[in-house]
Simulated assay, not measured.
Amino acid sequence: MRKQFSVTIVMLQLLGACAAPLGVGGKANAPSDEKDLPEAVIQLAAANQNVYSARLQPDGCYWYEYHGPVETTLLPLLTDDGKRICGEAGAGETTPGYAT
């Protein structure tokens, strides 16, 4: 009986390892299509960011998923000079097409 229980536990752990990991917000960690982002946003973003995971948030700015060693978190999408990239609703930040 104990051997059968141990085999069941090991099989459940192996099956759990095959599941897709969940990212921020419970979504699977799959890169979004380039078509989701305006080309101007991709051109404005600094090189060390994952622009293909970026999305427009309720604050009016673009945020991207940063996959750290412990957790995945959302960080603001920044330009080379450190300004946040925002849509038209984000006041005081860099707006694609209207960059200064």
Results as ranks from 00 to 15, higher is better:
Leu12Lys: 03
Ala45Phe: 10
Arg84Pro: 03
Ala89His: 00
Pro31Asp: 11
Glu93Ser: 10
Thr95Met: 03
Leu77Pro: 07
Ala47His: 06
Val51Glu: 07
Leu74Asn: 04
Asn29Gln: 10
Asn29Tyr: 06
Val51Asn: 06
Glu34Pro: 05
Tyr64Lys: 00
Pro38His: 09
Asp36Cys: 04
Ala54Leu: 02
Cys86Gln: 09
Leu22Trp: 06
Ile85Glu: 00
Ile9Tyr: 04
Ala99Asp: 12
Lys35Asp: 06
Pro76Lys: 10
Pro58Tyr: 03
Pro96Asn: 05
Tyr52Val: 04
Leu14Ile: 11
Thr73Arg: 14
Cys18Ile: 09
Pro31Asn: 13
Asn29Trp: 02
Cys18Arg: 02
Gly25Ser: 05
Leu75His: 13
Leu37Lys: 00
Ala40Tyr: 00
Ala45Gln: 05
Ala89Gly: 02
Thr95Asp: 00
Glu88Ala: 04
Asp36Pro: 00
Arg55Tyr: 08
Arg84His: 03
Gln13Pro: 01
Gly26Pro: 06
Met11Gln: 06
Gln13Val: 15
Glu65Arg: 05
Ile9Ser: 00
Pro69Thr: 08
Asp81Asn: 14
Leu56Thr: 00
Pro21Leu: 09
Thr73His: 08
Gly92Val: 01
Ala54His: 03
Val41Trp: 13
Leu77His: 06
Trp63Pro: 00
Glu39Val: 14
Lys27Gln: 12
Ala17Met: 14
Gly23Gln: 10
Tyr66Trp: 05
Asp80Pro: 05
Trp63Val: 06
Gly26Thr: 10
Pro21Tyr: 05
Thr8Tyr: 08
Asp36Leu: 13
Ala46Leu: 01
Ile9Thr: 04
Ala40Cys: 06
Glu65Gly: 03
Ala19Met: 11
Gly23Trp: 08
Leu22Arg: 13
Gln49Val: 05
Thr94Ile: 15
Asp80Arg: 14
Thr79Trp: 13
Gly90Lys: 02
Lys83Asn: 06
Gly23Met: 03
Thr72Val: 14
Cys86Asn: 08
Gly68Lys: 07
Cys86Gly: 10
Thr72Cys: 03
Gly82Lys: 12
Ala30Gln: 08
Leu14Asp: 02
Pro69Ser: 12
Tyr52Phe: 14
Ile42Leu: 08
Leu12Gly: 12
Thr8Lys: 10
Leu12Arg: 07
Ala46Trp: 00
Leu77Lys: 01
His67Cys: 06
Ala40Gly: 05
Tyr98Leu: 11
Gln13Ala: 14
Ser53Leu: 01
Ile42Asp: 01
Val10Cys: 13
Val41Ile: 13
Pro76Thr: 01
Thr100Pro: 15
Glu88Gly: 00
Gly23Val: 04
Thr73Ile: 14
Gly90Asp: 02
Gln43Trp: 00
Ser53Asp: 04
Cys86Pro: 01
Ala17Val: 05
